[in-house]
């Protein structure tokens, strides 16, 4: 038996999901972070974040069309993590690393938290 593995398929699907997001096609939730709004697909959010998984698997919350995050969450940090969810690319800037990491802890994105820890360790000579 043979199987053909399309090695680019996962990234091609993600690229298309990101295009759908940028055109606001079938996005089904608005995430409110302080005063900023981010449109996204619930399925992508819950596939990447433990917090969103818990929210959208709750039968009382899964139909919500808007979710407000803790006001302590930095919108810039959230924007970077949302971009990561849809692109696999995490933009780590030293000036934003703490807010990215704290937002990743809040969103329960454990592997991103680990990556932030490693980034902090390697950029801090002490």
């Amino acid at each position: 038996d043979s199987c053909i593995q399309f090695t680019r398929h996962a990234s091609d699907v993600l690229l298309n999901l990101n295009r759908l997001r940028s055109r606001d096609i079938l996005t089904d939730v608005t995430i409110l972070v302080n005063r900023q709004q981010f449109r996204a697909h619930k399925t992508v959010l819950m596939a990447c974040s433990g917090l969103f998984y818990t929210i959208f698997t709750d039968s009382h919350k899964c139909n919500l069309s808007a979710i407000s995050l803790d006001p302590k969450v930095d919108p810039e940090g959230f924007a970077i993590l949302l971009e990561f969810m849809y692109t696999s690319r995490l933009t780590l800037k030293e000036s934003l690393i703490m807010s990215i990491m704290n937002t990743a802890i809040y969103l329960q994105m454990d592997h991103v938290v680990d990556t932030c820890h490693r980034f902090i360790k390697t950029s801090d000579p002490s």
Binding site: D1, F6, T7, R8, D12, V13, N16, R19
Partner: peptide, 21 residues
């Protein structure tokens, strides 16, 4: 897929949704 002969296809797998119409 153990024991299955897997052939790698490196090209694009699906159509590309345009950035904007």
């Amino acid at each position: 897929y153990e024991g299955v002969n897997t052939i790698k296809e490196m090209g694009r797998s699906i159509h590309e949704i345009p950035r904007q119409d």
